[in-house]
Design a protein around this nucleic acid. Structure first.
Lengths: 182, 182
DNA sequence: CGAAAGAGTGAGTGATCAATCACTCTCTCT
DNA sequence: AGAGAGAGTGATTGATCACTCACTCTTTCG
């Protein structure tokens, strides 16, 4: 190891990356407490024992998954901002919101972050969630130049969308769901 | 039983009520999957075995707790609305929002609802969460006469407050936290 | 070749969990 | 008094959990 700087990812690192991707689906359903490491390993196509050679424990694994989700959201916001019609804060925010709505349509990534917020009684997870919000807020602020009030509304809308996806409100035909879906 | 209509709550029913109150604190920290029935029983001051005579299983217990929280939120909104300065929708919404902010200051009730949203991959829990939102939205609509857009913003603000309390943003001295706290 | 390093696993371990059972104690009503 | 109903519990069970260990197979490289 450490022989060349141009070496491809080692196989173990590639595996770790695979685990991060597939663990999103595994954790999405029942979160940190409700998902067993065996389920995560099965989703990644490896043995549970090897999972423990890739990550020191379940908490570190979950934190890594949250960080991975956080990075994907920032990529999404960035891609959205690039598609904004004008450089006006409101236009940039609207473009980012549209990209975000598209991103969370598959539910899994979103549910992991919802679960992570819930599991923030574990200090390490709380820090990961805080870091995720910190990076999102500062990125949105820098990319859009929006005011605090605009940013607050942006995140309020996003969180409402999260919950509506979480309870699958789009599949319901009730007045309250239609009201909140807007 | 069923002898008189004026009888006080039976002792078993009183116990059930105690359990619902105390279980909020127990479930708040680690949610449906992460909280054992032994912890819930201990918080209520009864044996775990008796918990199973009061509720058929863990899921029913959790659903009952969610329903209890739902009722408390509606009482809170109702009390808030009664304190509104004028009957204008915006004034009523503001008064309800203020009452809600006060209610969730203790974190526990709020965290249970956040956990319930997360646990909505369990059908019975999902239904309880949906019912909770349904009642809230329809109550807010009826009490305030607000437009759909106003209602959406009201719940977006509430959910943002939920998350900020969830990660204890008020205890942080960072720019992103100050921005979102407003 | 051969040996060292790393990828990967089967078979456990003790702890903990939801749920059950057999049992005791305390009322209430006749 | 005494019997029956309901309140309440200690002990247990089979399953599942996070985590570990001893081991094999494969790749790389001198």
């Amino acid at each position: 190891m450490a022989i060349t700087g141009s070496r491809r990812l080692s196989t173990a690192e590639a595996r770790r990356h695979t685990v991060l991707r597939t663990a999103i689906k595994a954790f999405a359903a029942r979160g940190y407490y409700g998902t067993s490491t065996t389920e995560v390993a099965k989703a990644a196509g490896i043995s549970q024992a090897y999972l423990y050679r890739l990550f020191p424990d379940k908490e570190s694994l979950f934190v890594a998954v949250v960080d991975h989700c956080s990075a994907r959201i920032r990529e999404c916001h960035s891609a959205g901002a690039a598609r904004a019609a004008t450089a006006e804060p409101a236009a940039v925010l609207a473009a980012m919101a549209a990209a975000y709505t598209e991103l969370i349509a598959d539910r899994d990534l979103l549910m992991v972050l919802l679960h992570a917020t819930c599991a923030s009684s574990e200090p390490a997870i709380r820090e990961a969630v805080r870091a995720c919000y910190a990076k999102q807020v500062e990125y949105v602020r820098a990319a859009s130049g929006a005011s605090d009030e605009q940013i607050r509304r942006f995140f309020g809308d996003g969180l409402l969308a999260n919950v509506l996806v979480g309870v699958d409100a789009a599949a319901m035909d009730t007045r309250w769901a239609r009201t909140l879906l807007g």
